[in-house]
Design a protein around this nucleic acid. Structure first.
Length: 479
DNA sequence: TGAAATGTTGGGGCG
DNA sequence: ACGCCCCAACATTTC
């Protein structure tokens, strides 16, 4: 009579509709996690994500234990096979989960649902990962949106997301627990010990996520509009990996922000930039659901013929943070060391790859996928296609970031550069964003030999910009 | 959620 | 006092 709760990208007890539904029934609850990476095809989690997943599962297991429950972990080529085994071992008659929206997950879940029902199992799925289901938001003509502003306006006009559900206090145990593999047996942790940087920057788990949200609201929410673009400050929430793994749900964030703002008489919170960022997350999932080819194919078909360059050495220089443009290199090194990059810098680094180096956005998307702890197929796809100008509501082809002026504008005191590109630390602020143009005496003084202690710029931005305009002009403009 | 190129304005130095 | 030039500051256009 037990209910299987299939945890996936919802590694939390609070505001977990599937878990709440299972707990509400007068029946034992069997929480399970199934590691079936092959079912995610070419978008299996990268090394940084796997590290996070390991930590997060550990926290979830502890949380469940505190409720008198247990997490049964299985690795399997096919989730369906593992579910059937778990059903057999636990005598469960019902399976519940919260929906995922990636194309591979949608296909798989549909098949699993049908197969289990044919087995005579009761199956239900719930929405908990988004404020609005992707199919619930439509243009007047019934189509999915392709422009953010009208999309989000439409969302805001819908009924408010419901209040988050409380975490169950206790979960009924089954007569016998289905055995669990060890977490270690999933081999999620990296072989090399490079994860210290990530561990120093982040603490996975829903407790840390909620602490971070409270801290953000108290310390940074009011100034978010002005400080969110300054990578040298602590102006953003850094909730992205927690959101990706579902350690905290968007409804919890939405309502916590509402309560915080209303308590202080701030009634414009709905239109705050922070809430708008939740909107972009929704929009990304909306697009991925309705345009499932976009992780590998440009949404705008004309870009399929774009003459991207092939230049492995340039790609390598970009990946490793050795382009000679400090703001780009700082971002790429922050990514490599912490599994995260400030959003403003993501745009700058992405623009550099796509426009200055004329390398395909999909190469950048893949690198981010492998290295980000918050790697999310929907957000990553939207972000890269946006920068490349080949996606929905994309940046126009002529919008090309100048890595020097962007650095000067958003990191005026060079704090971000000094943190991640320490070899430039001795440069005065005047030159820290363009060592390639600094007078020899200044470089001397700072102990820098261009080409040795720090790379010379791998391209001349002014030249690269003109080449990009030329190439994009041919294929990019909307018709 | 750009930036460069081009155009306009207005104050100050100077003959 | 006046016109001229220079150029910074700002605005507009273009890619």
């Amino acid at each position: 009579m037990a209910t299987l709760v299939w945890f996936r990208r919802d590694l939390r007890l609070a505001d977990n509709p599937a878990l709440a539904a299972a707990a509400a029934a007068d029946a034992p609850v069997v929480p399970v996690y199934i590691h079936a990476p092959d079912e995610e095809a070419e978008w299996q989690p990268g090394a940084a994500s796997r590290w996070w997943l390991h930590q997060s599962l550990e926290r979830l297991r502890a949380k469940l234990r505190a409720c008198g429950s247990q997490l049964s972990i299985r690795a399997s080529a096919h989730a369906l096979a593992a579910l059937r085994a778990l059903i057999r071992e636990s005598g469960a008659t019902r399976v519940v989960w919260n929906r995922c929206y990636e194309p591979a997950a949608v296909t798989r879940d549909r098949a699993v649902k049908q197969a289990l029902r044919e087995d005579g199992i009761e199956v239900a799925s719930y929405g908990g990962a988004l404020l609005h289901e992707p199919w619930a938001v439509r243009t007047r003509g019934g189509d999915p949106f392709q422009v953010f502003t009208p999309y989000w306006r439409q969302c805001q006009s819908l009924e408010d997301p419901s209040e988050p559900l409380p975490a169950p206090r206790a979960l009924r145990a089954p007569a016998a627990w289905p055995p669990s593999q060890t977490l270690a047996s999933l081999e999620l942790l990296p072989k090399l010990r490079w994860s210290e940087g990530i561990a120093a920057a982040f603490t996975p788990g829903s407790d840390a996520a909620h602490a971070k949200l409270e801290h953000f609201l108290a310390e940074a929410f009011d100034e978010y509009g002005s400080r969110r673009d300054q990578p040298g400050t602590d102006g953003t929430s850094r909730l992205s990996p927690h959101l990706h793994f579902g350690e905290i749900g968007p409804r919890e964030i939405w309502h916590a922000t509402r309560r915080f703002a209303e308590h202080r008489g701030r009634h414009s919170w709905r239109d705050s930039q922070f809430i708008t960022e939740l909107g972009w997350r929704e929009f990304a999932h909306h697009l991925l659901y309705h345009f499932p080819n976009t992780p590998s194919q440009p949404l705008r078909a004309s870009f399929a013929q774009f003459p991207w360059r092939a230049d492995p050495r340039a790609l390598e220089a970009w990946s490793r943070g050795m382009t000679g443009y400090p703001i780009v290199d700082a971002g790429m090194r922050e990514l490599w060391h912490t599994g995260w990059m400030h959003n403003r810098v993501r745009m700058i680094a992405a623009s550099f790859l796509v426009k200055d180096l004329l390398l395909s956005w999909s190469l950048g998307a893949r690198w981010f996928w492998d290295t980000l702890v918050d790697a999310d197929l929907a957000a990553n796809t939207l972000g890269w296609q946006w920068v490349a100008g080949c996606g929905a509501d994309a940046a126009p082809f002529f919008r090309i970031f100048n890595p020097v002026s962007q650095g000067q504008r958003f990191d005026p005191d060079g704090r971000y550069i000094r943190r991640w590109v320490p070899e430039l630390g001795g440069l005065p602020n005047r030159w820290i964003h363009e060592p390639g143009a600094a007078p020899p005496s200044v470089l001397d003084e700072a102990g820098i030999t261009l080409g040795k202690s720090y790379p010379s710029p791998i391209v001349d931005h002014a030249v690269a910009r003109r080449a990009a305009l030329e190439a994009f002009k041919r294929i990019g403009p909307r018709r």
